[in-house]
């Protein structure tokens, strides 16, 4: 009986691994295929029967991407946009989130509800007026058009407020007795404690900012102010049938994010789990 139960356990463990492995293969094969195509010759990529592994790795496909579009500029624009948006949004949201979580002031609930109501509205409802504002400011085709509207986030404020509310009050009270004003309490005491929450928010902002497509398509149409996602769209317009170049471009657009993910994997997972558990 014992042996039987053991066999059953091993059997089910094998089954679990088989299911998970099939799933994992489905998840990873598109990436492998993207890479393999990116180093094939165009002939190899359209050969029947299929060539799986290219004879010689064609790294110059990546050079061709740089030749046809200013990809270095796309990288720079995407990085600057993501950096400013992330730092700015985390600062602005954490300031407000602290006030909402910890200071009593008239109108607190009203202001907080107003911020929350923004969360209910689908993004497209803001887009045309935001575009008109950018146009009126003369900001079309500029990096600030990509950055500025993204500095303010109801989601970020909500997330950080929830986080501040879980922190113990004792430290703050001690700071108050020492004569710290609210800003110093926030800056010197609460901010260091809220680091995990801020990292979670930062990861969301990085992810959304790096991958966003519609807003960059709308506001920045000149190649020198484009980001990677919109750049990929124009690459597709230029080389609609040459998949070796399209795949090389795609690889280049996703590799930085994959590296960031592999390095900060735990924070990513915890951040996503945090939003689900509130």
């Amino acid at each position: 009986m014992f042996a039987n139960g053991y066999k059953k356990k091993v059997g089910s463990a094998v089954l679990v691994h088989i299911i998970l492995l099939v799933g994992a293969a489905i998840m990873i094969i598109p990436f492998i295929w993207m890479f393999l195509t990116s180093v094939k010759t165009m002939g190899e990529s359209t050969m029947v029967p299929l060539v799986i592994i290219p004879k010689q790795l064609q790294w110059n496909n990546y050079l061709k991407v740089f030749e046809s579009l200013p990809f270095l500029t796309f990288y720079w624009n995407t990085m600057i946009t993501t950096l400013f948006k992330t730092v700015g949004q985390v600062m602005i949201c954490s300031l407000a989130a602290y006030a909402f979580a910890r200071i009593e002031f008239p109108g607190r609930n009203l202001f907080f509800l107003l911020a929350l109501s923004v969360l209910m509205v689908p993004g497209q409802v803001f887009l045309i007026p935001q575009y008109m504002i950018m146009k009126d400011l003369g900001w079309l085709n500029s990096l600030q058009a990509l950055i500025v509207p993204g500095l303010f986030s109801a989601f970020g404020t909500f997330l950080l407020r929830q986080f501040f509310m879980t922190l113990p009050k004792e430290l703050e009270e001690a700071a108050k007795l020492d004569g710290c004003n609210q800003f110093r309490t926030y800056w010197q005491i609460m901010l260091p404690l809220a680091k995990p929450g801020m990292i979670a928010l930062a990861i969301f902002v990085i992810l959304w900012s790096w991958n966003d497509l519609m807003w960059p398509l709308i506001v920045n149409t000149s190649p020198d102010k484009m980001v990677l996602s919109a750049g990929l769209a124009s690459l597709q317009g230029e080389h609609s049938t040459n998949y070796t170049i399209l795949m090389a471009g795609s690889m280049m657009a996703i590799i930085p994010m994959i590296i960031i993910f592999l390095v900060f994997q735990r924070s990513f997972i915890e951040g996503i789990a945090l939003t689900g558990s509130k």
């Binding site: 990436f31 993207m34 497509l213 996602s229 919109a230 471009g249 657009a253 994010m257 994959i258 990513f268």
Partner: peptide, 11 residues
């Protein structure tokens, strides 16, 4: 974590 534009392209 992969950019939807790139996901769409490879698919």
């Amino acid at each position: 974590i992969t950019m939807p534009a790139a996901v769409a392209m490879v698919w």
